[in-house]
Design a binder for these strands. Structure first.
Length: 467
DNA sequence: AGCCTCTTGCA
DNA sequence: GCAAGAGGC
């Protein structure tokens, strides 16, 4: 019998346009697909709670698809290098095919896998990005640090390869023992907090394809006009499918030719991944060194109010509650809540990054780190330090009828549009008529907005002076 | 991918 | 009295 190859799937949980799968099939050998759950090697960046919920359903869907195609998915739990080496030994595999890792911890781990399986080779193919980060560089040969020229360079780099269809069948190898997915305990049990996630999402490749089709058919032409309005269904909501590689950026790119504004968002994703590639400490340390001296505050109560959506600022609380209940937050609101944490509360962006990592179904190391640093002002192409989002003005501008706030902060539902984003501005009689008592039925603001803004501007200005 | 203040133009 | 645009932070 022909010796098999392993197809090690990690964050490319799809059959459509999966170059690693294609490379494995091209060997002409039986293919044994494997997924290894390793909660040790990633350290702080092991998947968070919401990501684990998603992963469970994604693996269940992929497993069913792979059975149908003839190559059942093998699940193992343990250190990546041990488990891949063990599987090579068990199966007599002559090669291991995988997606090119993009996270710094994974890039290091794959080097230990290479040592552990030698002389069997690990063959990596880029599955997560349009281009390998080394392909996109400035004339001077340096990585791009500003989005606009980066995007221009990607667009000028040549046509994006067309997506490959899923194979009709996969020649499987001899049977290999697999863990039972249920035994991994990826789903929350006591308490089961995933009710809102189940309502909001259909994880897995079929769900990804359905969502893409629906967005292209019904949302793409309105994207530019509605993308910033959190009360509407104006964004693609593809991010969680991207996070586990249930859809490929090439497929999304080629499906969205009718809207360059949306393609820009695909390129922002690409930009963040390239930034992390070239700056491995991006998730932990400010890219601009002078930000290490930022006098962040220590405020457990403020952090907790932010996490729970109890800051007393309606649009912030709506966003944080949307995140808690659905595992996702509208992008416009992500910028608002992040700015509020980092600037008005002056809490370190790493605390927000960690909370998002645990609660987002689309948690992605590069996107999360690059975006938090962008808001904090410490990242590449960052928002200037003096750019402080005013959550009341943002709310009035992007949620003018308060639909979003009312949906996620129902205790404010009866307030008139004019004050729904600033209940403290409402005359006492208006608040009373709406059933609101500040500090009782809804929190008083944890920080006075003008004072918080001034405090942040002063701290950031001092930082700039030092630099 | 901001906010604020000031100015201008018009009612 | 205000909306809209310019320019500084």
């Amino acid at each position: 019998m022909t010796a098999p190859v392993l197809l090690w799937l990690r964050r490319e949980l799809r059959l459509t346009d999966n170059p690693a799968l294609r490379a494995a099939l091209a060997t002409g050998r039986p293919v044994i697909p494997v997924f290894v759950l390793d909660d040790e090697t990633p350290g702080a960046w092991a998947p968070g709670g919401a990501s684990r919920w998603w992963l469970h359903h994604s693996l269940a869907a992929l497993g069913a698809d792979l059975v149908r195609l003839g190559a059942p998915l093998v699940l193992r739990r343990g250190r990546l290098d041990f488990e891949i080496a063990r599987l090579v030994a068990e199966t007599g595999a002559v090669e291991v095919h995988a997606g090119t890792p993009t996270e710094p911890w994974a890039r290091a781990a794959y080097r230990t896998v290479i040592d552990a399986i030698a002389p069997v080779k690990l063959r990596c193919t880029m599955t997560a990005l349009l281009h390998h980060p080394d392909e996109i560089r400035t004339q001077a040969g340096t990585p791009y640090g500003v989005f606009t020229p980066f995007g221009r360079a990607v667009r000028a780099h040549g046509p994006i390869a067309l997506p490959e269809p899923a194979p009709a069948d996969i020649p499987g190898g001899a049977a290999v023992a697999s863990d039972d997915l249920e035994s991994w305990g990826l789903l929350p049990a006591a308490p089961d907090w995933a009710g809102g996630l189940r309502t909001a999402w259909s994880p897995g490749e079929a769900g990804a394809q359905a969502r893409l089709r629906e967005f292209v058919a019904e949302g793409l032409d309105q994207y530019r006009a509605r993308r910033d309005l959190p009360g509407t269904d104006g964004t693609s909501r593809l991010s969680p499918f991207f996070a586990w590689g249930e859809i490929s950026p090439r497929q999304v790119w080629h499906s969205s030719a009718a809207c360059e504004k949306f393609r820009d968002e695909v390129l922002w994703r690409e930009f963040a991944a390239h930034l992390l590639w070239h700056n491995p400490t991006l998730p932990d340390a400010p890219l601009r060194a002078e930000f290490a001296a930022m006098p962040w505050r220590d405020d457990q109560a403020g952090l907790r109010a932010w996490q729970r959506g109890q800051t007393g600022i309606p649009i912030v609380d709506a966003g944080m509650r949307q995140l808690w209940h659905t595992g996702w937050m509208h992008n416009r609101v992500r910028m608002i809540v992040a700015s509020f944490l980092v600037k008005h509360l002056m809490l370190p962006w790493q605390l927000g990054e960690a909370w998002f990592w645990d609660t987002l179904v689309d948690a992605d190391l590069a996107q999360n780190a690059a975006s938090w640093q962008w808001v904090a002002g410490s990242g590449a192409d960052a928002a200037p330090y003096f750019r402080v989002f005013n959550p009341v003005l943002q709310g009035r501008k992007f949620d003018p009828d308060g639909a979003y706030v009312r949906r996620y902060v129902p205790e404010l539902a009866l307030l008139p549009d004019s004050v729904v984003h600033a209940p403290w501005e409402a005359p006492a009689l208006v608040r009373e008529a709406a059933g609101i008592r500040l500090g009782a039925t809804y929190p008083a603001p944890v920080v006075e907005l003008a004072a918080g803004r001034d405090r942040a501007l002063q701290a950031f200005a001092a930082l700039r002076k030092v630099a």
